[in-house]
Design a binder for these strands. Structure first.
Lengths: 148, 148
DNA sequence: TCATTTTAGTTAAGCACTTAACTAAATGCC
DNA sequence: GGCATTTAGTTAAGTGCTTAACTAAAATGA
């Protein structure tokens, strides 16, 4: 290594890819979060609703934690305001007293119906520098990157 | 739209790319953050040191905020422990009394020299599912995505 | 020239997450 | 059958960021 300043300025390919990933992702996430925020909503809570919906409308908190990739305490904290807003419902599990069954309400469902398409549209617009075949290439490369 | 459950399950290409980006980036960031944490360090503080070094060893906090992409108050909060650990030094600007000149100390520089190469190595290893030409393709696509 | 606006940085309050510690219920095992 | 262990969820404390409000210094402009 010649000197530290040159070392930090001349990044190797892996690092360039790393920082590009971080930056591109941050920009897209910002678009999405701003959309939800502008509607008094919150990306993390929406992901919970989507995940409940994917499961068919009911799910356990611990499963949500795995799917979303956050900790169990955080799931509790996310569910509280969702329940207060009437978007989900908690019922205790009939067989297993430790479990709580989370179900999405019809209000939760209509919130998704009303907002998800536009949110997807905003994200898609932010990606419009890439053609469809480039998006497909990118997806393949990202999925290959994940195999590790 | 047929029904909400199918809608959330069948994601369009843009959304697939979006979520792949988020996931892949999160995994790589986790590797990097764990590395710093295992050494009692912190990715955000390291980024500050690197950015000071890129500038040649001295920089203003407001410039740091722009480069790193965080708010000014956060820069203050990041600089405090760096100064307490003797990794940076604050001096008031000789001409402009509002400004504070941040300079990296020799301790700060040796910390980077000692740890940056291994950190880069860990990140590179996490990417080893991709060949060099694939990394180059990915970089090109990410840079094109950013043009927006 | 001196009052107003802008700029630089810090302090305060709040939000979204984490880890650690806890409660309660179910399971396992002799 | 009853004690120890595991599992599910919540509560508490702490971290790292944000926005809003503040202080002080410099620049602007009638």
């Amino acid at each position: 290594m010649k000197n530290l300043q040159e070392y930090v300025q001349e990044m190797p390919l892996h690092s360039l890819v790393f920082f590009s990933l971080v930056e591109a992702t941050a920009n897209l996430v910002e678009v999405s979060e701003k959309y939800w925020k502008s509607r008094g909503l919150n990306g993390a809570r929406i992901r919970l609703l989507v995940e409940i919906m994917k499961e068919g409308g009911t799910i356990l908190p611990s499963m949500l934690a795995k799917r979303i990739g956050v900790t169990k305490p955080n799931i509790t904290l996310l569910l509280v305001p969702l329940e207060n807003d009437g978007l989900i419902r908690r019922t205790s599990h009939p067989q297993d007293g430790r479990k709580t069954v989370i179900s999405i309400t019809s209000e939760g469902q209509s919130l998704l119906l009303k907002n998800l398409p536009e949110n997807r549209q905003r994200i898609a617009e932010k990606m419009n520098a890439l053609e469809e075949d480039e998006l497909k290439q990118l997806l393949v490369l990202l999925q290959k990157l994940q195999r590790n």
